[in-house]
Design a protein around this nucleic acid. Sequence first.
DNA 1: TTCTAATGTGTAACCGGTTACACACAGTAT
DNA 2: ATACTGTGTGTAACCGGTTACACATTAGAA
Lengths: 336, 336
Amino acid sequence: MFSMATIRDVAKQAGVSVATVSRVLNSNGYVNNETKKKVDEAIQQLNYKPNAVARSLYKKTSKTIGLIVPDIGNPFFPELARAVEDTAHKKGYNVFFCNTDENAEKEEHYLEILLQKYVDGVIVASNTLTAEKVKELNIPVVSIDRKITAEIPTVVVKNKEGAQKATGYLKEIGCERIAHLRGPHHIDNANERVDGYLEEVGNEPWFESSYIVDGNYVMKNAIQATLELLERHPEIDGIFAANDVMAIGAVKAAHRFGKKVPEELAIIGFDGISMAEATTPELTTIAQPIYDMGTAVTDLLVKLIEKKPVERTFLELEVELVERESTRKQNNKGGR
Amino acid sequence: MFSMATIRDVAKQAGVSVATVSRVLNSNGYVNNETKKKVDEAIQQLNYKPNAVARSLYKKTSKTIGLIVPDIGNPFFPELARAVEDTAHKKGYNVFFCNTDENAEKEEHYLEILLQKYVDGVIVASNTLTAEKVKELNIPVVSIDRKITAEIPTVVVKNKEGAQKATGYLKEIGCERIAHLRGPHHIDNANERVDGYLEEVGNEPWFESSYIVDGNYVMKNAIQATLELLERHPEIDGIFAANDVMAIGAVKAAHRFGKKVPEELAIIGFDGISMAEATTPELTTIAQPIYDMGTAVTDLLVKLIEKKPVERTFLELEVELVERESTRKQNNKGGR
DNA sequence: TTCTAATGTGTAACCGGTTACACACAGTAT
DNA sequence: ATACTGTGTGTAACCGGTTACACATTAGAA
C-alpha cells in the first residue's frame, strides 16, 4: 500500500516551499516561470493530486451541494437529478444525493449530515421542510417543484395555467363532462392544478364537485379511483389527471372499464415524463420543462452560494401542451 | 452571520480539554460520568455539530462513496440508485452521484474528483473502465450490471440463463418463429443474452441469423429495427427484446405494423423496470432484482472499505419471469 | 542617487477535528 | 513500603492544504 503524494512532497521534489506550490496550483500570487516549470514537473513525476478535503477545511467550502428528493424512483426526479448533476458539474460542484420519502425526520437527518459535510448549498424537493429549519442551516437552500415559503428561493412551473390549458384543451376537442384526478391535498402544486381545472369548468352547468376525485400521484391508486369515478359518472368523456403516472393509471382503468381512449374518453396528464411515451395510446400531457427546471435551480443555487447577483428568486417556468394519442378531436357528439 | 461552534468552543464552555470532548463525542477512552455530563451540556448549549471535513482529513476516510452510472434517466438506474443510497445511508455513508453517458473521459474525470474528495469507494456501471485505471485509484471499486474484469468485484444477474428462460417461455406458449432484438455489441450483458437466445433456438430448423437484429437499448431505434424485422420476416410470432425499453418499442412497432400483441405476436423484455407496467398491454419480462442488486453491491463495497471478510466478490443474482399481458398461450396455431 | 513599486519566495499559523503520549491519582497486589 | 494496574485528563502534534506576513531583489521614477 502506498500513500498519496502531498504538497510538501511536491515542494521538496521541486526544491521550493509549499506556498510556491500552492501558488502554482491555484495560479495566484507571483511565480517565476522557471519555478513554475519545476513545480509542474514535480507534480507530474509524483502524480500529485491536491487533497480536496484539506482545502475544504481551510476554505470553508466543499464545492459540493446536496440534492434532496422524495424518491428518485418517482419518474419525475431522474430527469431533474440529471439536470442538477450536469449543471453542478459544469460549475465545479459535486452532488450528494438523498431520498427522504417525504419523511420529515429523514429529511432533517440528511440536512444535518450535509451540513456536517460542509455542503455549500442544498436543492430540496420537499413539503415537510419549514422556513425556520432552513434558516438554521445558514447555507443557501433552494426549493424545486414545490414552494415552501416566500423566503426560500424557488423554481416551479405555472401549475394553474397548465391545468387550465389541459382542461381547456379537453373542452376544445369536444369533451362535455370533464373530471379531474387530483393530487394530494398537502401538496401545493396539486391544489394549484385543481384551481386551474375549476377555473375552466367550475362554472359549467354540469359541474359538480364529485367530478373531482382524490389521487395520490401513484398509479395503483389512480386506477382504483378512476374505476370508481367511471362507475359513478359513466357520462364523463374527458379526464385531466394531475400527473402523468395517474393519467397512465386512468388509461388502464378506462381499458378495463371498456371505455375506448381516446374515442370515448380523452385523457390528459401533467408532467411530461418519458414514461408517457411508453403507453399505448401515447399520453397527451402538459409537459414541464423538467431538465430546464433542474438547470435553473442549480444555476440559482450556485449564484447564491457564490454571492453573485440574482435577478429573481422565484422562477415560474412555462408548461407546454404535448398532443399525443390519448386525446383526439371528438366529432361523434354534437360538439358546440 | 455567525460561525459554527468548534470543539474548542465546547471544551472552553465545559471547562475541559478538546481531547475530553473528542472522547465524549466518540465514546472512546475513559471519561468520568460527571465530566461527560458537563460536555454534553456544553454541546447542547452551543448546538455543536462536529465538522466531518476536519475529521475526514485526519482519519483519511470520508464516509462517502461515489456512484457512477451512464445516465440516471435510463429507467434501470433510478431504482438501482435508490437501493445504493438507502443501503449506504444505513451504513453511515453518503453517496456522490455522477452521470458519465458512457463517456470514458467524463468517467475518468469524475473518478479523479472523487479521489480528491477522499471517497472511500466507488460503485460503477461502466464498460469503458479498465482494470489498470481501477488499480491506480487505490480504493475499493465494485462494478454493477456489467463485468469489467475478473479482478474487480462485480454484481450482475444471470443474463444467459434469463435469456434462455425468456426464449424458452416463448417456445412454451407456442411461438414458432422467435426473433431477438439484441443490445449493443460492446456491452457484455447484451452478448450473454444473445447466447441464451441462441442456446434455445440456434439449432431450430427454421433459425437463421437474420432473426437477430441490432438494437442499442433505446426505444426509438428499437421501433425502427422491429418494423424492418417484421417487414423482412412477417412470419415471426415472438420477439425477445434484450431490454424492456426495446420491448416497449417493439410493442409500438407491432401496433403500427398491424400485428396484434399478444395474439399474433408475443413480446418479452428483460430488466423489469417499472415502465413495463405502464404499457398496454403490460409487458412480460425477465425481471432483474434491481433493488437487491443495489443492496448487494453496496454491502459488498462497504465490506471491502471496512476490510471485513467477504465471501465472494462475484455475485450472479437470479432473474425471474414475470408474466403479464404481452405474451399469452397461443392455441390458434397447431402448437407442438 | 534614493525612494517606491512590482516581483518572487519562504515561514509559520490556521482550518477543526483525532490521538499519541505524558502525567496524576486511586486501588490492589507483593 | 513498593510496584503495578486501571481510570481520568491535558498538551501538542498531526492530517494537507491556504495564506498573512516578512523579506529579498530588481526595475523604474524622482
